[in-house]
Amino acid sequence: MQDKLNEINSIAGVMDSVLVNKNGSIVSSQQSPFLTQSLLESIGREVMQLDAAIDAAGEGIKGFDLLYDYGRVIVQKGSNFYLVVLCKSSVDTSLLRLTLNVVLKDLNEKRVSRGSSGIRMFNMT
């Protein structure tokens, strides 16, 4: 899964990419030191809101392209997850869209499972 995110991140203008499940939990990320807990949580929250918006809009919507002063956030809907890409305005959007189509197909086939919570074990003794 990580190799797919690396493929996206290798495109000029892409800052980072994250896989989020529909509960807003991060399934996979590059674990960049700048993707802090609060930023990851805010991505999770945004995605949950977008999930509700996509459900309300119907089947035709496959994602969102959110434009900000400092860049854009592209959210693509997968079978049971969202792929969130943080990029600069200068990104080659055609190349990014082609890559996302291919990566999404691969990830859909792998059926991304539920994300880990980060804490793998907590057995008080």
């Binding site: 990320s29 807990q37 919570s117 980060g118 804490i119 074990m121 907590f122």
Partner: peptide
């Protein structure tokens, strides 16, 4: 010696731990 807590810092930062 049993481990009682482990995980990754990207999900739970050091100050929280």
């Amino acid at each position: 010696m049993a481990n009682i807590l482990n995980g990754t810092l990207s999900q739970m930062n050091l100050s929280e731990i």
